[in-house]
Amino acid sequence: MRPFRLGLLGAAVIASLLLGLSAGAVALPLGEVWAGLWHADAAGAAIVRDLRAPRVILAFMVGGSLGICGAALQAMIRNPLAEPYLLGLSSGAGLGAVIAIASRAGSPWAIPAAAFAGALCAVALVYRLSLVSGRRLDPHVLLLSGVVVGSFAGALMSAIMVLSDAPGVRNAFLWLLGGFGTASWQALAVFTAYASVPLALLVYHARSLDLIALGDEPAHHLGAEVDRIRRMVYLCTALLTAASVATCGIIGFVGLVVPHAVRTIFRPLHRTLLPLVFLVGGCFLVLADVVARIAVRPLELPVGVITALIGVPLFALLLRRTLA
């Protein structure tokens, strides 16, 4: 890969992180951000250290993880339109989390586990619905099934939120729209604990994804254990999506926009694609969060709104291209 492009990416990562630390209801100049990072008694230290640093790092981690989920799912079903939100994983995870909250099992560590169960159920249901004549997987039917399962999970979530009298459920509606308003060092720790193993596993199997993207039979012929890798990818993407949904709600289209941008610019193999997608996805969500914070200041927009505003036109464009 060209060093110039890599340098540009490195600069973009640093710039987005600094911008994330600086922007918000109270705008901090970069000098104050810098001082706040290194000196506990500096003027903006509390805002930078306790509020914005965990928020920016969490947004970066979640953006990177959702990007990697999208890239892996796209290779798996050989369709650039695949991503956790459109495949119903996010809504399944949201339903799992809402059920956990409604049944008062809402500890920070239990919610991601319930979300994981929800995401797994959703992916299993989507997969089963997409098998044409009981065995062949049709990528277009898969996306349709994802939308249907996502809508069904959304309807169940709404019903639970209306009917439940559990204390946390009233806030669940805002949380589900996606945002980093409640980010904390603890939320970051929970997310990192759940996300680090699936992230490492997906990067470890990046070369297998190159083969899977060719189709099942070519992948078999070239030496990939297709069924084992498929199970691993579904488990890892379900876990990553669950961790994201549990810590910051449903944020769609990151897994669509980011891999598409990286593939268009670099055309890389997955060994390079996944780390790049992580970095670009991180920047993308940090910047989307900045826009969410400053667009209607002092109010804050859900970050899922920003990613959808960017993602939906791109989805329409890709859909036209894949059907052409």
């Binding site: 650039p80 297998s208 190159d210 993207a213 070239l222 030496g223 990939a224 055309r267 193999l269």
Partner: peptide, 16 residues
């Protein structure tokens, strides 16, 4: 679905 270069495609033969 995701086009690589010819050299990269042939290198996939070395996966095993």
């Amino acid at each position: 679905v995701f086009p690589l270069s010819v050299a990269e495609t042939v290198m996939l033969g070395r996966y095993a």
